[in-house]
Design a protein around this nucleic acid. Structure first.
Lengths: 207, 207
DNA sequence: GCTTGCATTAGTACATTGTACTATATTTGA
DNA sequence: TCAAATATAGTACAATGTACTAATGCAAGC
């Protein structure tokens, strides 16, 4: 593992534990027995660490989406996809919660074009729901799809904020299960009998 | 207006504009032509400013809830309540977005018992939905109510994060309208014909 | 085997930040 | 009017992010 990777690994652990603001560059260095100047060498700004972690997260997720689109659309597989995404978000929770600091980066789009990724994800979900309509898992109008996409964009991004709001270190399994369950309920409001069966099978498989 | 109130007022403006982290105590002082030591006198910690603003927000909202519960339950009045809350959240948006810093406060509950307020709000929503069921505006099971409360707890808290994620200073009216609309759609999934009419009347009144 | 160039690391210095502390000024109340 | 409380200014200090410089390690080429 390269020093750069070690820094990212240690930083993520510390950030998940204590929050981005409360993790100093010197602290990361201390944990790795490196000087602060050396951390500076690999990541000239502290924000760069956050950006790099976001990038890792994005790549993980892209793989999950690719997997999904490689197979047949179904409500069950959709929920499996979302479980993968939620697990991944949990793993990078400190990054999301500390993302106030990358907001200007996000907004400027200089180093990391988050907006493009975001738009890509939104159209990905639109495609997913359209395919689930075609495969008779969902019974939705175009307006419904728009609504569901807006819903999943918000809930799918911010559930981890809520989960860590009162509980500093929540249990991953039960937390992810809880929010997946809410999502499953939301989807089932638009499900055909086929889709509903698929969803309930998924929920049983998560017991 | 007392100095304390002036500080809060100026701080909120600056925080909404630039974000909590990027507003220094000296900057607030400069804007008010006060020394940093004086700011320190009124708020010995910078976080205290955030806590005080949260307290202001909480009081505003408590008044809105009281108003609602003083009248007859209806889907229309419920959405009016939510509009009031959303407007208020928009006004304090910087506080919410910067609340990573009060998280430890929230979690410890030493100075500000946010958890209690939160629980109170949740049971408030439970009551609201139960009353809307009794008044034949909603057709919901107890499980549905639990689901709706979980939904509104998350969406109602974090829509403002999403709204300011890509757009640094979004338009209040259109933003609030957008998220109210999403909420109205969510509620209408469980609405009786009476409730649905109420909701569509509200949406028309917002045009 | 030695040197040259480049990547890495350490050490340090500096501006800025939150905050504590002290001294001065202003207001208040009896 | 004067003492006490409140408010304000000024400053000092530790900690932080970060820029800069010097030292070290290391692989490739002759």
């Amino acid at each position: 593992m390269s020093t750069r990777e070690k820094i990212l690994h240690t930083a993520l652990e510390l950030i998940n534990d204590k929050g981005y603001v409360h993790v100093g560059v010197r602290e990361i260095g201390r944990a790795l027995k490196k000087s602060p100047g050396n951390i500076s060498y690999h990541f000239s700004k502290k924000e760069d660490i956050l950006i790099a972690l976001l990038e890792q997260y994005r790549e993980t997720n892209s793989a999950l989406y690719e997997d999904y689109f490689a197979g047949q659309p179904s409500a069950h597989r959709f929920l499996e996809l979302m479980k993968g995404i939620f697990d991944s978000q949990f793993r990078y929770r400190g990054v999301f919660i500390g993302n106030q600091f990358v907001k200007e980066e996000i907004q400027s789009g200089n180093r990391y074009d988050y907006r493009a990724t975001y738009q890509q994800r939104l159209s990905g979900f639109t495609r997913i729901f359209r395919e689930l309509r075609e495969s008779k898992h969902l019974q939705v109008s175009d307006e419904d799809i728009e609504f569901l996409v807006a819903h999943i964009a918000l809930v799918g991004r911010f559930w981890i904020y809520e989960a860590t709001l009162f509980d500093k270190s929540p249990n991953q399994e039960s937390t992810v299960k809880h929010y997946l369950d809410l999502l499953a309920r939301q989807i089932s409001l638009f499900a055909t009998p086929l889709g509903a069966q698929d969803i309930s099978e998924f929920r049983v498989s998560q017991e």
